[in-house]
Design a protein around this nucleic acid. Sequence first.
DNA 1: CCTCGCTGGTTGACAGTGTCTACTATCTAT
DNA 2: ATAGATAGTAGACACTGTCAACCAGCGAGG
Lengths: 208, 208
Amino acid sequence: MSPAPSKPVDLKQACIDEAFAIIQSKGLEKLSLRDVARRLGVSHQAPYKHFASRDHILAAVVARCYAEFALYMEANVPETDSFESLHAMGLAYLNYAREHPLEYRLMFGSVLPDPELHEEMMQQAQYAFSLLHNKLEKLPLKHAADMATDLEKHDAIFVWSTLHGLATLLQSGVTDTLTLSQAEKAVAIERAMSRISLALDPETRGAP
Amino acid sequence: MSPAPSKPVDLKQACIDEAFAIIQSKGLEKLSLRDVARRLGVSHQAPYKHFASRDHILAAVVARCYAEFALYMEANVPETDSFESLHAMGLAYLNYAREHPLEYRLMFGSVLPDPELHEEMMQQAQYAFSLLHNKLEKLPLKHAADMATDLEKHDAIFVWSTLHGLATLLQSGVTDTLTLSQAEKAVAIERAMSRISLALDPETRGAP
DNA sequence: CCTCGCTGGTTGACAGTGTCTACTATCTAT
DNA sequence: ATAGATAGTAGACACTGTCAACCAGCGAGG
């Protein structure tokens, strides 16, 4: 007979896995709950016992992305609060985005209509963000004269913005416009990290 | 009788307008060609005479966003190649993103499955990007000792990354995580602009 | 003047989707 | 042993994108 998929014991987890696989192979907009069910060899209504709607299964996929992203950052960023640590974090962040473009897009591509409706996912997102945020707030920053309020928060946002923007630009079609080779992308990354260091601590003159 | 919508002379343009209105009021994923047709008082197949598929109408909407974005930037960025001009461009960029969150998301939220398939849209995008790119490449930059290749391109990417990342972060749910008020967002923007100046020209000490 | 083909419109059909409701089997706690 | 929850099935409905076939006007060429 045809290779009827075996019904997994944990259907909920299996749905998330399968949904991700479908997005990966056919694209986000082709994801359908019925397809998930079919591939898992269950009825088209079975997934509804675990997810209230298509958006909810998508939210679960995104939540898993945040969780894995957090694990990656925890594993690849040292504990110290120095600029070496900042450099490492930046590279880790950009590496993750480069190695997991789909996951990155799911997390930051605003793919869900109403993110705030999905509690679990929001928590995973906030935890991942808190990793970045905490690390950035501990940096020994230099402030220029005109910076009235010296809230570290705003500098954290500056660093994060640069990392996030660079990650997005490098994996969007923009790189075609700029005709950036793979090697040049690496240079752009190093350059950005240098400029960040220079921005936060002018004496370093951009050295990592 | 019920307010039957009058059939517009230029159906193609009307479709684009109506599609954008639908996205604005009901969300991107609720956009349907049949709904567009219904609102315009034409048959459900009429739009297909002007757009090959749902994606193609979406691409037309996005193309229009790029065109308007380009107009905005051209109108709000001075011609000079100084750092004042950089500051103005940054603010214009971030203002546009703040005032037109939907358009910004349509342009940068990777909302189309295969952007490269839509010629017209790609051209609009490239023109808009070239405005940023040209402006950034003309800046008088200072290079630190360790920056081997002094291609302006990479610094342009750094600046653009920060602007783009900040625009994205400020309008994503992340700001809730960071509990940023509207006033603090403005501070974050000014801070980021200062840090950019500092990064590119350490002597300025971040003053605009 | 007739006819051809093109452009832009119509209706109808089909497969596929999300989701509602109703039914069933199976385990579990009392 | 039985009642209830849990996790699955089957069917129906409204809606979608898209294909095919058909039709009105209209300008060009004979």
